[in-house]
Design a protein around this nucleic acid. Structure first.
Length: 299
DNA sequence: CGCCAGGCTGTAA
DNA sequence: TTACAGCATGGC
C-alpha cells in the first residue's frame, strides 16, 4: 500500500467516523482496513493516527476524496460567527455535537455512485442501504479481476430488468434507478453541467431525475459536488432543528416546518458551511460502532 | 407483531 | 401551496 502522513493542518482526521456517519454506503471495515468503491474501482484505506495507507487510488485523488484539504478551523470559525450574528449568542448544543465529531470530513464521492446510493436511501436505514449498494455491486458490477468489481455505470444499470434489480432489496426504488440511469446515459454531460450551476440551479436539475427529491438532491450536492451549503433534511435533522432551534424559527413561522424552511434556516444560521454543521449534528459515535460490528463477521 | 428508517411520486384539496 | 396515501424491506 502507498501511504501519506497527515500534516498538522489536516489533523484531527477520523476515517472511521467519516465513513460511518451515513454519508457513504457499502464500505466495509475488515480488521483495520476500509474497503469500498470510489470512481468505479475498489479502494482500500487504513488510518494509523496521522498515517494514511491506501491503494487503488492516487494521492491526489484520496486527498480530495477524504476532504483532507478542508480548512476545518476556518469552517468552524465561520459557523460560529454566523451563529453569533444570527442569534447573538454562542450555541452550546452545536459545540457539544462538534466536540463529538472531531475529525469528521465531508467526503467527495463520485457523483454517479453517490446518486445511486441516495436513491436507494429513500425511507430506509443506513445498514440496509449499504446492503443494497453491495448487492448491486455484486449483481451488476463488471469484473475486472477476480473478486473485484467495478461499479456499474449508467449504461449497465439502464439496461437491467426491474425485477432483477428488486432482488437487490431496492423495492419500489428499482424503477427510479433504471430511469435515472437511462437519463444519465442519454445526457453524458449532465454531471459536468451540474458542477457549473449555482446551488439552487443544481438542486433543481438533480430533482429532474426519477427518485430524486429535495433530500436526495441535497445529499448528492453535499457529498459529491462539494456544495458545503447543502443541508439534507431527514427525520433526524428535522427533529433536532424542531427541538433545539424551534424558538429561532417559530417566531416567524408556524405549523409544520417545510423542507425549505429548515434548509434555509440552517443556511442563515450556520452560514455557507451549513452542510458541515448539519453533518456534525447528524453524526453520532454509535454509528461508528455499528459499522465495525457490521463488518466483524465478514470473511 | 408494530414501528421506524438519511423520501419520493402522484393525487386531491 | 400544503396534505396525504402508497410504496418494499430490513432492523429492532
Amino acid at each position: 500500500m502507498k501511504s501519506l502522513i497527515l500534516t498538522r493542518s489536516q489533523l484531527p482526521f477520523d476515517l472511521d467516523l467519516s465513513f460511518s456517519c451515513g454519508q457513504i454506503f457499502g464500505w466495509k471495515k475488515c480488521r483495520d482496513i476500509w474497503k469500498g468503491v470510489h470512481n468505479g474501482h475498489i479502494v482500500t484505506i487504513r488510518q494509523n493516527d496521522a498515517q494514511i495507507d491506501y491503494d487503488g487510488i492516487t494521492k491526489q485523488e484520496i486527498i480530495r476524496f477524504l476532504g483532507l484539504s478542508d480548512p476545518i478551523p476556518e469552517i468552524i470559525e465561520s459557523i460560529r460567527n454566523h451563529i453569533i450574528a444570527y442569534s447573538g449568542t454562542s450555541d452550546a448544543f452545536f459545540e457539544a455535537k462538534y466536540e463529538q465529531s472531531l475529525g469528521l470530513r465531508i467526503l467527495r464521492q463520485n457523483p454517479w455512485e453517490c446518486l445511486v446510493s441516495f436513491i436507494c436511501s429513500a425511507n430506509s436505514n443506513v445498514r440496509t442501504i449499504g446492503k443494497r449498494i453491495n448487492l448491486i455491486l455484486g449483481q451488476y458490477g463488471t469484473s475486472c479481476t477476480k473478486n473485484e468489481n467495478k461499479f456499474p455505470d449508467p449504461a449497465v444499470l439502464s439496461q437491467c430488468v426491474e425485477q432483477d434489480l428488486r432482488e437487490c432489496l431496492t423495492g419500489y426504488r428499482a424503477p427510479y434507478l433504471i430511469k435515472t440511469a437511462h437519463y444519465i446515459n442519454e445526457h453524458p454531460d449532465f454531471f459536468k453541467q451540474v458542477t457549473e450551476m449555482d446551488y439552487y440551479q443544481a438542486k433543481e436539475a438533480l430533482m429532474i431525475l426519477p427518485g430524486v427529491g429535495p433530500k436526495v438532491a441535497d445529499c448528492v450536492l453535499l457529498f459529491a459536488f462539494e456544495r458545503l451549503n447543502a443541508v439534507p433534511v431527514d427525520i433526524r435533522i428535522r427533529k433536532i432543528i424542531e427541538t433545539q432551534y424551534a424558538d429561532l424559527i417559530y417566531s416567524e413561522k408556524t405549523g409544520k416546518l417545510s423542507y425549505d424552511t429548515i434548509g434555509e434556516f440552517c443556511r442563515d444560521y450556520f452560514g455557507p458551511y451549513a452542510g458541515y454543521a448539519q453533518q456534525f449534528l447528524f453524526a453520532t459515535r454509535d454509528m461508528e460502532k455499528d459499522g465495525v460490528t457490521r463488518s466483524a463477521g465478514l470473511p
